[in-house]
Design a protein around this nucleic acid. Structure first.
Lengths: 188, 188
DNA sequence: GTTAGCATGTAAGGAGTTACATGATTTT
DNA sequence: AAAATCATGTAACTCCTTACATGCTAAC
């Protein structure tokens, strides 16, 4: 099996599944999808688009820039100025995305991927949503257990601030578990 | 000015300031310092140690492995088996670390660095601690403001799950601000 | 007519990880 | 004798950012 798609690739495919977009616009929507502090740079976005195109998942259509408001009403005389490339999913791309969105294994629970997968829950079927939420939940409780044991082992020799950092870390994870619990009950 | 030290480098210097250690042991203590899920791999640890040594901040002393428990009490006959390299800060290294730990600019507040800097607060003077905590706090409130505005602008067209993700994100940041507030009052 | 925003891209670099390779030492 | 754990290291790769380069279009 080839390596899983990256966060960026998943997000691109998910967004383009709703509607075709060009790179610049896509970036803005990525910011809205995942929160403005996970916006990707053009330096990764454009190469990613090209790579997806080369894999046959996207088709790029060069489009002459239609001026937003033309002063003159003559529609035909627009000479092809600096154009933009509108990308859309190919049939293969749709299949690939459907496959990706129906997967609910560890890759979907991990820190790096969970957020994107969650953001695309609107395109994910209910059983898969539930399995991902539960998978993430058990992943987090495992982590909780590991941290607690490690804390118990090293409590004595641990520096004051380091200990505070661990407490806060535990707190964050516990909170996320409760958040997941709410979502899980709400899903049924 | 040369580029700031990485998280790993900072953590290494901070730990070695307390006591000399060899790589393998160092890694374990890194896990305790930052939490078991921020443990670094040997693949980054050993190159980092070498790089710090080449910059003159560390001195590595090859040490023949003293068997933990010698069956025979004869201490002298230990032939130099597989040795380990114990690293310690040079004088230059101590200066460099002191400088690093007294800095309280943006680099110390950012997501990537804040945790290490906090974990090393035991070696940081009180004014610097306070400035870092306050710097991080204001960074987070800025972020809060930005996310709220972005949310207000895009509320309507936002997908249900995407919106939930943003709410949860806001919640996490708000919590961290309150945590910082507690720490700040406690620091005075 | 100059700034601000739209639009696409490349080259180099950053900060790590994974997988691999090797071997000693201790425990079971 | 086998398995676990101690101990050090390299090569290739990952996924992304920054800085740079270019030029069009809209607004002030």
């Amino acid at each position: 099996m080839r390596s899983r798609s990256t966060v960026l690739e998943t997000a691109i495919l998910g967004l383009l599944n709703s509607s075709p977009l060009h790179g610049y616009e896509l970036r803005k929507q990525l910011g809205e999808l995942l929160g403005p502090f996970r916006a990707f740079s053009y330096g990764s976005l454009y190469p990613a688009l090209r790579a997806l195109q080369e894999r046959g998942l996207l088709a790029g259509l060069e489009q002459s820039a239609t001026p937003r408001r033309t002063r003159t009403a003559s529609a035909a005389a627009t000479k092809p100025t600096r154009s933009r490339i509108v990308y859309e999913l190919t049939l293969l791309g749709r299949d690939y995305l459907a496959d990706l969105l129906s997967s609910s294994g560890p890759a979907a629970w991990e820190d790096e991927n969970f957020d994107v997968r969650f953001a695309l829950f609107g395109q994910t079927d209910a059983e898969t949503r539930l399995r991902i939420l539960e998978g993430r939940r058990s992943r987090l409780t495992e982590r909780l257990e590991a941290v607690r044991q490690s804390a118990a082992r090293t409590r004595h020799r641990l520096d004051e601030y380091s200990a505070e950092l661990q407490r806060h870390g535990l707190d964050k994870v516990e909170r996320e578990v409760r958040w997941l619990d709410d979502l899980i009950t709400h899903e049924r």
